[in-house]
């Protein structure tokens, strides 16, 4: 009986939504036209004519994420950083075993995974480095690279992290380097202001109405869009190794964790 009620409600909801969006033309009411705010972002993302407002990046989403709404993203990164600190706090005192004899999955899966990992790394790096030109960016690239941590843990067993040279402390250090690099890019204009006296603002990317400060927009005629490429690369480090830390801890066997944490934490 309960099953039929659930099915009926799903069918009913779907039909009502389909009716609203097609015959009642709700999408038409909301408007398929580009809205004013979207138009503004799309016009300004790459616009050398609007010198004081543009980001000089053809990727509108990255422009919004790291320039127009840059402080939002900065704090999101901080929240992610804190969340992983919480995970580390739960697992405090657990040493990561360097050598253990675990077998992992079959040879076929291992070979296929070995072929996939370099492709995965290449895609992740290119998504991060092209984040200001094509869809993607630091977080997307970080999440793509983090999949490797799952593959290593599941296919080759948890002991494989040590074999490829990734340790818990290294991963923690690299993600901290990522966050510090973001903070460094944020504070460069302020330091520049203190040293030269030229007006510059926190997290400034390109020239503003009353400030001529600008990050280099090109390297050897290649567009790097000022701060965007640095933010993307730093976020890539922070996110990917943040996920690495979590999955390294999660892949530990429960009995090993309990043994190391002692009985008072063991239940």
């Amino acid at each position: 009986m309960r099953k039929y009620i659930v099915l009926l409600s799903i069918v009913l909801t779907t039909s009502v939504l389909a009716y609203i969006t097609t015959y009642l033309e709700a999408i038409g009411l909301v408007g398929l036209d580009t809205r004013y705010l979207a138009k503004l972002f799309l016009t300004l993302a790459y616009n050398p004519l609007a010198r004081e407002l543009t980001v000089l990046s053809p990727e509108a989403v990255t422009s919004i994420v790291w320039d127009f709404r840059g402080i939002d993203t900065f704090y999101e990164t901080v929240v992610f950083y804190m969340a992983i600190i919480a995970a580390l706090a739960i697992y405090r005192g657990v040493g990561y075993p360097s050598i253990r004899s675990e077998k992992g999955l079959s040879i076929i899966v291992k070979v296929v995974t070995k072929l996939l990992i370099p492709i995965n790394i290449a895609i992740a790096v290119s998504v991060a480095a092209h984040g200001h030109l094509t869809p993607g960016g630091g977080f997307q690239a970080g999440a793509a690279l983090a999949v490797i941590s799952v593959l290593l843990a599941v296919v080759f067993s948890a002991s494989s992290f040590a074999r490829v040279g990734v340790s818990l402390s290294k991963a923690i250090a690299l993600r901290t380097v990522g966050l510090l690099a973001i903070a460094a890019v944020v504070f460069v204009p302020v330091v520049f202001n203190a040293l030269t006296g030229v007006q510059a603002y926190l997290m400034q990317n390109y020239v503003k109405v009353d400030s001529e400060f600008a990050f280099p927009t090109h390297i050897q005629s290649q567009l790097i869009s000022g701060t965007l490429i640095w933010f993307n690369l730093a976020e890539f480090l922070a996110v990917s190794f943040g996920f690495f830390v979590v999955f390294m801890l999660l892949s530990l066997r429960e009995d090993v964790v309990r043994e190391q944490l002692g009985e008072e934490h063991g239940h």
């Binding site: 869809p135 999440a143 983090a146 999955f247």
Partner: peptide
């Protein structure tokens, strides 16, 4: 898509 794919299908 690029963020949803690795997070929702992999991680």
């Amino acid at each position: 898509v690029l963020v949803y794919l690795p997070v929702a299908v992999g991680l």
